[in-house]
Design a protein around this nucleic acid. Sequence first.
DNA 1: ACCATAAGACTGACCGGTCAGTTCTGGGAG
DNA 2: CTCCCAGAACTGACCGGTCAGTCTTATGGT
Lengths: 213, 213
Amino acid sequence: MAARKSATNGKRSQILRAATDVFSAREFHTVPVDDVATAAGVGKGTLYLYFPTKEQLFYATILEALDVLFAELESAVRGRTGEDALRAFTRCFVDFFWSRRHLAVLMGRYEHKQREPEGESWRLRRQKVLNLARTTLLAETRAARLGTADTMLAAEMLLALIRAAVINQRERDDPERSVTLVVDLFLNGLRGPRPTTTRAATRSRRVTAGARR
Amino acid sequence: MAARKSATNGKRSQILRAATDVFSAREFHTVPVDDVATAAGVGKGTLYLYFPTKEQLFYATILEALDVLFAELESAVRGRTGEDALRAFTRCFVDFFWSRRHLAVLMGRYEHKQREPEGESWRLRRQKVLNLARTTLLAETRAARLGTADTMLAAEMLLALIRAAVINQRERDDPERSVTLVVDLFLNGLRGPRPTTTRAATRSRRVTAGARR
DNA sequence: ACCATAAGACTGACCGGTCAGTTCTGGGAG
DNA sequence: CTCCCAGAACTGACCGGTCAGTCTTATGGT
């Protein structure tokens, strides 16, 4: 029985993995279910044993990934605060999509689906991630005297920066560098950190911006 | 003849406007061409007199909008430099989508289509906008000692911030406020501008963050 | 023999694009 | 001004292809 169940789950995640690949490479509506089944190495009928509709299969790929992401983010920031937490958050985020580049495309592409019936749980999950970002930023935003609405927007902007960094990253780039770029830009802007001593600012700037080349 | 031609163009843009509305509200593949025709108040056949395929109709909505955006951006920054230019650029961008909110969704949703055959001209146009952003940033990025690759990424990040601001803006918000938020965050980060005099920084921060509420 | 699982052939709905027919327009003749 | 006609503009019923989801059949384990 345990064996049966594990075999079952094995096939389910096998389908799920294939679905993620295929849905990342091509747009949802241009992908025939047969293609997913073929990619997964199962018959179409089998696929429908595990997922009731094509849409649900699609959402399953997103939702499960978001759950993993959230769990990883949460444990990454646990016990940290301030800039340290922010950096850990960003690093975790970047790494997650670093090893799942296709997912970044997939998620960005269909964020709007949040309005559809199934999309509700998607919205909820995204909200959870956003809230975690907001919490992580709380100290900084308080220091900046931001109101609640602005804090939320700041969190959105952080995610936007991360997204831009991930999407524009080349294969050969160093993910850690993206983290630095994002966090530094987000905290100190293009003009660099406020100098505590005049020379310190210059040094810090070079680390931020000049590492490559 | 002049009358004929203007009547013709009138119908074309009438269809185009309807298409933009419909394609913004629902996803491309879930929209039957009949719906667009109905929304435009013309028969399906008429639609196919002006646009060869459904896809081309779709792309026409995007491409024409991008052309307008680029022209407006270009004239907004002409003759300006530095922070002044950056602010004008951002303001123009925000205003454009402010009066065309649906477009922001539409463009973000299908950026990935750039890989498709028709998407080539899309990619080109986006590139033009991106380059304009890069040029506008040139002074700042030089000051920050960024390499070419990083300057490009900085431009991407500026666009990402603008996009986030536009998408998260509520109907009642003041667009000018979004501009301020984006530019200030981009240049000086969440921690605010480097103080030239101690008090000046505080004043500037309040403008950045505290205008609402 | 019976059940659980898998496969892929099949079917019905749906929609992009066409085209045969209709309506509009404008201008020339009476 | 009215009638008529030619051609342009427009229309929507229809056709053919494409799947999402079902159902029959095959396989193997107990």
